[in-house]
Design a binder for these strands. Structure first.
Lengths: 333, 333
DNA sequence: CAACGTTGTGCCAACGATGTAAAAGTGGTT
DNA sequence: AACCACTTTTACATCGTTGGCACAACGTTG
C-alpha cells in the first residue's frame, strides 16, 4: 500500500489540496458539507501527514536530540524514558545519541547534529570543554543536564549537587559514623567537584577532619570502578566506617567489594549512593541514596527547550534546580 | 546563524546548485578545480544537508523506530543502545517509542507510526495479538524481537527460548537440585510459554517430575514480581531447592525475598536468571543467567530491516536465531 | 574538418505540505 | 441592479534537495 498524500485525499473528496490541508489543520472557515466530505476521504485513505514535508515547509524538524553517555547505564535509561514522554507532550520525537562519555564522542555527536536535524538538544556532558560548546552547537538550542564547573552560557537543569552531597554525608554523621570516605573523585567531571565540595563542607560542619586518603578517585562511574575504589579503602590501615559514593553504580560495586572481604554493610561500613537507580532498592542490602526527581528533570529540560525554540531570544541562560530527597534504606540502618 | 543551503554554497563557489549537490554526493565527474572551490565553500559555510529535504526527495525518512516496553528496564536499555549503534552503521537514526508493555500501548504506538514517519520498525511486543499487526503495520516493514507463540508473517530475531530454558534447567539438575521451580508463567507472553516448555522438557529428560505448584506466575517481569513469587514458593510445605526465573529482574527480586527470609543462595536455593543484565554480575550473590548475544540481536534486526526496506519483496519472513550462553556465577555454585 | 564519444555543468521538475493572496461565492443593504 | 462585507476556495510559490535530461566543452578519430 502506497501512502496517501493530500492530493489523493483532495481528488477523492473533490476539493482542492489546500482545502484538505485546511481541514487537517483545523482552519475555521470550511463549509460543513466540504468538511464532512474531506473527513470521509481522510478516513477512507487512511491519510497521515508526511512529517518530513510538513517540517520542511514549517522550518522545524519535530525532533529533539537527547545526548547522553550510554543507554545501558541505568540512570540514563530511566531518564531517557522520561524525556521521551516529556517530549511527546510537546509534540516532539526524541532522538537518542550516545557519546560513551568521552570528549571525542561528545564532540562528534554535537558536530553531527546539523541545524536541520533537530529543533534542539538536551545534553548530558561528561567531558566537554566550555569552548567545544560554542564551536559545535551550530545554533541549535541546547539544555545541559547536571550542574557543571564549566561555565557556559546555556540553560541547565539539575539538582543542587553541593547540598545533596551535604545531606548524604550529614546522614552518615547522624548515624554516628566518623571515618567517612568518598568514592568518585574525578579530574574533569563537573559534578564530581561539586559533590566533593559538599562532602568536605558537611564533614567540616560536623567538626570531623577531611582525610585525603579517604577520598578515592574513580575514572569511570561504573560498578567495577566502585569495587576497585572500595577495595583500596578497605585495605587502609584504618578503613572507613562509612562511604559516600558519587553514584549508585559505584555504590553497588562498593557493596560487592565489601561483601567479598567479609565486611558487613551497614554493620562495619555504611554506604550511601547517588541517583536512586531502580536497582538500588533491591540490592542486598538495599541502598540509601540521593534521589533526584528525574521526572522533574525531564520536564524542566523539555520545557526550557520549548521556550528557547519558540524564539524567546532575549532570555538569559537559566539554571533550574529540581528537588531531590534522601532515600534511606538498609545500607545505612 | 542561519543554516547554509546548497544555494548559498553554490553562490559562494560560483557554480550551480546541482554541481554542489554532485560534490556532496560523491558524483565522479566534477572538474578538480570546481571540486576544490566547492569544497572550500562547503567548509567556509559549514554546510550540512537538510536531512528532511533530502529524504523528502529520496522518499526515505532516514529513521527507524524501536518499539519497546520501557527504557528503564535494563534489558531494553542495553538493547536500545546497541540498536542505535547498529542503526548508525546503516545510516539510520533510531527513534525510540515506549509501550509500557500493554496491548493498548503497543497498538497506539504502531498506529502512530505513519508510513512517512520511519522507514521501518523493530518491535518488541509483549501483548500484541496477531491481527493487530496486519491492522496497524500500515505497510511499514517490521522486525519482531523475541520468539512468540503468535504466528505472524513477519521477520523475527531472537534466541531459541526452548533450548535456552533447557540449558538453564539442565545446569540446575547438574548441580544436584531436584525440586526445581520456575518463576514467570504468564497467560499471554509468548516467550513465557516457550521458556516454560523448555523447563518442562529438561525436567522430564532428567527423570524429574513436573510439579505444578512449583510453577509460579508473574504478571509483570519486574523485581517486585520476582520477590512476590519467591515468597510464595518459599512458603510451600516443601519449598524448592532451585528456581529458574524467566528474566533477571525476577531473579533479583527472588534473591531479595530469599535473603529476607534467611534462605541462603545458593546453599538452600540456587537461582538462574535470563537476559544477563549488567547488574546481574554484581548482585549478591552474582546471578547465573542465560546470556543472549544482544549485539547480534541488534545487528540482525537492523540487517533484516535493511533487506526489507531495500525492496526485496519476495523474501519469505525469516526467523533468525542468535547465539546465547549460560553464564555461571555465584547463585548456582 | 566533420563526426564522435566522453566529461562536466546547469536548468527544470518534483517530493508533500503550507502561507499568501487573489478569486469566487454568499447574503444583505441601498 | 449595483455595491459591500464577509466567508470559503483555489492557484501558485516555496521550503532544500536530487533525478532526468539537455547541452557545452573537450579531446580523439577517420
Amino acid at each position: 500500500m502506497v501512502a496517501a498524500t493530500l492530493k489523493d485525499v483532495a481528488e477523492l473528496a473533490g476539493v482542492s489540496v489546500k482545502t484538505v490541508s485546511n481541514v487537517v489543520n483545523g482552519y475555521a472557515f470550511v463549509k460543513p458539507e466540504n468538511r464532512r466530505r474531506v473527513e470521509e476521504a481522510l478516513a477512507a485513505t487512511g491519510y497521515r501527514p508526511n512529517v518530513g514535508a510538513r517540517n520542511l515547509r514549517r522550518g522545524r524538524t519535530g525532533f529533539l536530540a537527547l545526548v547522553l553517555p550510554e543507554l545501558s547505564i541505568p540512570y540514563f535509561g530511566e531518564l531517557a524514558g522520561l524525556v521521551i514522554n516529556a517530549g511527546h507532550d510537546q509534540e516532539w520525537n526524541v532522538l537518542i545519541e550516545q557519546t560513551l562519555g568521552t570528549r571525542e564522542g561528545e564532540r562528534a555527536t554535537l558536530g553531527a547534529l546539523g541545524p536541520h536535524m533537530v529543533d534542539g538538544a538536551i545534553v548530558s556532558p561528561e567531558a566537554l570543554h566550555a569552548n567545544d560548546f560554542e564551536e559545535l552547537s551550530g545554533g541549535v538550542p541546547m539544555v545541559m543536564l547536571g550542574e557543571h564547573a564549566v561555565d557556559v552560557p546555556v540553560d541547565r537543569v539539575g539538582i543542587d549537587n553541593v547540598r545533596a552531597a551535604e545531606v548524604a554525608v550529614r546522614h552518615l554523621v547522624a548515624i554516628g559514623r566518623t571515618r567517612i570516605a568518598a568514592i568518585g573523585q574525578h579530574p574533569t567531571r563537573g559534578t564530581a567537584a561539586l559533590r566533593l565540595a559538599g562532602y568536605r563542607s558537611a564533614l567540616t560542619e560536623a567538626g570531623l577532619p577531611v582525610r585525603e586518603e579517604l577520598i578515592a578517585p574513580a575514572l569511570n562511574y561504573h560498578r567495577r570502578d566502585g569495587a576497585t575504589a572500595m577495595a583500596d579503602l578497605l585495605a587502609l590501615p584504618e578503613p572507613p566506617d562509612a562511604v559516600f559514593c558519587f553514584n549508585d553504580l559505584l555504590a553497588i560495586g562498593a557493596l560487592r567489594a565489601a561483601a567479598e572481604r567479609g565486611v558487613r554493610v551497614p554493620g562495619d561500613v555504611a554506604i550511601v549512593g547517588f541517583d536512586n537507580n531502580e536497582e538500588s532498592a533491591y540490592s542486598l542490602p538495599s541502598l540509601t541514596t540521593i534521589a533526584p526527581d528525574k521526572r522533574a528533570i525531564a520536564r524542566a529540560a523539555v520545557d526550557l527547550l520549548r521556550r528557547r525554540v519558540s524564539g524567546e531570544e532575549g532570555l538569559a541562560p537559566q539554571q533550574v534546580h529540581v528537588p531531590f530527597a534522601l532515600e534511606i534504606r538498609e545500607s545505612t540502618s
